[in-house]
Design a protein around this nucleic acid. Structure first.
Length: 246
DNA sequence: ATTAAGTACCGGATGTTTCT
DNA sequence: AGAAACATCCGGTACTTAAT
């Protein structure tokens, strides 16, 4: 290790240290590595997508499979062998994509699920509303959080379709955009895994199960973190978002 | 004792198959 | 074709366990 470091650039040395930490069982380091190579996974997904032979799967599906391959790669890469991670991961990621596509007879279900994310949000929002013993402001804050997250969700969808323009004017007025800003800043104040869960789920539309894999936690735990995060954001929004709009 | 995380189960929504 | 029964997935929650 010491011998090697002298021939490495500072950035490389830092990366190598990160790998060492991850191998030592440091979950944070592992997560940072996964995060670091998200872009690489996306490129791999794009390559495969460009070579696709049919249109049964959307790019998002390729990306999801690529992410799975990336996680496997991070977990199994042996940094000591002197092979570049990208070289090692490329094989595994394209394998994961092929695997995923092959076993995606449940593809339709997944697509439907993704389509229904928004309605699920609305549904869970209704639950909150129905709770009788919560005070009115908390309920309103719930609605604010839910609506803004919903719009953020739609916005990312629009980015994907490349039709960014127009929609804001129709649906999201100035007030809504302000609200969205407030939600974003509330999002920034979340800490640790809570922020990660909200970011992955709402901004990147990654399902709980996959977030769980990425963070090395259980699905149930992700649900808990999700709920806690929404609660925190609701608290933050109390008295800020409400008086502007409600 | 407190907090983070895991397990097992529930209910809702959707998709699929079977029956009329 | 339409209804009904069944299956599956997903997020949520109550309870338990482990770590500090």
């Amino acid at each position: 290790m010491d011998r090697l470091e002298q021939s490495l650039s500072p950035a490389d040395a830092q990366l190598q240290a990160l790998w060492l930490e991850a191998r030592g069982g440091n979950a944070g380091a592992r997560e940072r590595l996964i995060e670091r190579y998200q872009g690489f996974a996306r490129i791999m997904a794009a390559k495969s997508f460009a070579r696709r032979v049919n249109d049964e799967s959307e790019f998002d599906d390729y990306l999801q499979y690529a992410r799975i391959g990336l996680i496997e790669s991070v977990d199994r890469f042996d940094a000591g062998r002197g092979i570049k991670f990208e070289t090692f991961a490329a094989v595994r990621i394209s394998g994961a994509i092929l695997n995923g596509l092959a076993s995606s007879s449940e593809l339709q279900r997944q697509l439907a699920t993704r389509r229904s994310i928004l309605s699920e949000r609305v549904a869970s929002l209704r639950d909150e509303e129905a709770r009788p013993d919560e005070d009115v402001f908390a309920q309103l804050a719930d609605i604010a959080v839910g609506m803004a997250l919903g719009f953020m969700l739609e916005e990312t969808g629009m980015y994907r379709d490349g039709e960014r323009t127009g929609m804001d004017d129709c649906y999201a007025g100035l007030e809504m955009r302000q609200l969205q800003e407030q939600v974003r800043s509330a999002l920034k104040e979340l800490q640790g895994n809570r922020a990660t869960v909200i970011g992955y789920h709402y901004l990147q539309q990654i399902p709980f199960e996959q977030i769980a894999t990425m963070l090395g936690l259980s699905k149930g735990r992700i649900a808990q973190l999700h709920r806690e995060a929404l609660g925190t954001m609701r608290e933050r929004l109390r008295g800020t978002a409400l008086d502007t709009r409600f």
